[in-house]
Design a protein around this nucleic acid. Structure first.
Lengths: 333, 333
DNA sequence: GTGAAAGCGCTAACAG
DNA sequence: CTGTTAGCGCTTTCAC
């Protein structure tokens, strides 16, 4: 049997207004005695308030949506965890929405979340979107983007890591180790982070008096498969390289695999550097030198900004760029 | 400006009932003409129905909760993906809830989900629960457990993989390769899957005329760290073993790491076999021989069962045990 | 300090 | 075929 606030009110011999006040801690004006009286009944009958009904009147659902490409991409679980941790702490619940980088799915979820009256949305936009047309309508609900900003007018905040500097440091590190020819196996270049990493790569070349060779820049997707096939392709194209700067760790894993297949040793023959520092980067062979992105923190901060906005405490900052960190292990000579 | 069904009704010159019918595809009894009329208005003003309000009257939220220990444990993303894929396909949205195997958090989420009136819950119960006291109250909403069943009377369905047979086959495989002394680095033994794997291990020993030696069974947690420290401990305890059957891949990764640290070669000196087949099992060195669990499918099936129950189409089966599969790679001699 | 009553946006009889 | 109306369970003035 499900009890309603009415039942509890009757059982406790008070009005629904009173019950409402005590279960929502608007207690100040309620007598200790009546308070206890209703609490007793609430306990006794295991009364669970219907928050849907509350939402009807308060216009708040204490729910946020998290839209990401794919939770089974190792980049996202940590981020999702960060989002959930902060949200949960503040009494918010989070909807998990995977888009597979499909703009249709993304749009469908945006709409669904609106229908479900979420208080806000955290969005990692699909990366295979034409840069120009966000295809996202500005809704009345707050949106904070994470990892990949989109047009500023649809978002109320953004957190990302410093891809440019991360890439710059990675490539500079390669040079500092005496490597000369850095192949760049990039993610999809129409996505913002890929682009920023590419720019960091180029800047590092320029600052070290190197020529930017377009052939040495190959773009694909953020997958193990692309790392594998891209490496093979570079080799069969007889590109001359002694090191690979990979768009992310998955690409790096694929690259290492391909290199091994071809009988090449990492890092003795070819050095490889990744991006992300997913958990397993440290246990592959050789342990991967990579640029650590603060995934958990990115999720946590975006959650914080969003919820601040929801709660009208206009956050001090709505744009955060988090530092990356070069993690030196053994995949670079 | 947010429009309500009333606004749309007025704008279209019809009643709210009519609008309701067309937006919910209860169209049969509506004229093509009026249908078009309201659709036009809906489109024109970007009307988004408030599903919270619908839920008030229909008593359905088209929302399910997914309670798992930790999405950043590589076991769960695939499972979550499976859950979401099926749910989304049928128009359901899923709440992501991490418990960290903390019974308090689990309970809190169960309550919160009830308050939010989810239509059902998919639960991977915390594994550090005393076996006997589930501490979970049977609520009126359907629950299907996944990976780890709990007391049957709180759950309306269960899907798991065949841990017993998976373990049995893994250990038998070791014997078939001429290995003699199999150390078992187990997960927490108060959890059901760990226990079943242990039983499979024992059965394999017995069937191959081996003695079960309690010293060779060490239990810890499903973490890389435990694999590492457990292996070191076994070595410093001077246990004699030529192979390790690990409770999961993470433990196996840790074990391999520890072995390498000690200058031992896998599989030449010690063979290692895992459980799960997470994505990165194939790219570590050596590629891990392991028992594949159908994580995605487990999520998908549990979602299917749950939603069937929610939609009153009593599913043909509510208990599913999915087959595991021995994946032979190179970590066993 | 407590209660009566209006109303949040929608759906589901039921009437017409 | 379409409209009227009575709630769904709760919060929130505003009286008392």
């Amino acid at each position: 049997m499900k009890y309603t606030i009415k039942d509890i009110a009757k059982l406790a011999g008070v009005s629904t207004a009173t019950v409402s006040k005590v279960i929502n801690q608007k207690d100040q004006e309620i007598t200790e005695a009546t308070r206890n009286k209703v609490m007793a009944v609430v306990k006794r009958y295991h009364y669970v308030p219907n928050r849907i009904a509350s939402s009807m009147v308060t216009k708040k659902t204490h729910t946020i949506g998290l839209i990401i490409p794919d939770i089974s991409n190792p980049f996202f679980p940590e981020l999702a965890r960060g989002v959930e941790d902060y949200a949960n702490r503040l009494g918010f619940t989070v909807f998990l929405c995977n888009t597979d980088n499909d703009v249709q799915k993304e749009r469908a979820y945006m709409e669904k979340l609106q229908e479900k009256m979420v208080d806000g949305i955290i969005l990692t936009a699909s990366d295979n979107r034409k840069r120009v047309t966000p295809s996202l309508q500005k809704t009345s609900i707050p949106i904070v983007t994470v990892d990949r900003g989109v047009d500023a007018d649809i978002s109320d905040g953004n957190v990302e890591s410093n891809n440019f500097i991360g890439a710059y440091e990675a490539v500079s590190y390669l040079f500092s180790k005496g490597l000369k020819h850095v192949l760049h196996l990039s993610g999809p270049l129409h996505s913002k982070p890929s682009n920023e990493r590419l720019e960091g790569y180029k800047k590092a070349l320029v600052d070290h008096y190197r020529h930017v060779n377009q052939d040495m820049i190959m773009d694909g997707s953020y997958t193990l498969d692309w790392g594998y096939s891209g490496t093979l392709k570079a080799m069969s194209n007889r590109l001359k390289f002694d090191s690979i700067f990979c768009g992310n760790d998955l690409i790096a894993f694929g690259a290492i695999q391909a290199l091994k297949t071809k009988g090449l040793s990492v890092p003795n023959d070819i050095s490889v550097i990744g991006f992300d520092d997913i958990e397993l980067a440290k246990i592959i062979d050789p342990p991967l030198t990579t640029v650590k992105q603060p995934n958990y923190q990115m999720g946590f901060e975006s959650s914080r900004i969003l919820i601040d906005i929801i709660q009208q405490k206009t956050p001090d900052i709505t744009e955060i760029t988090l530092d990356t960190q070069l993690i030196i292990r053994h995949s670079v000579k």
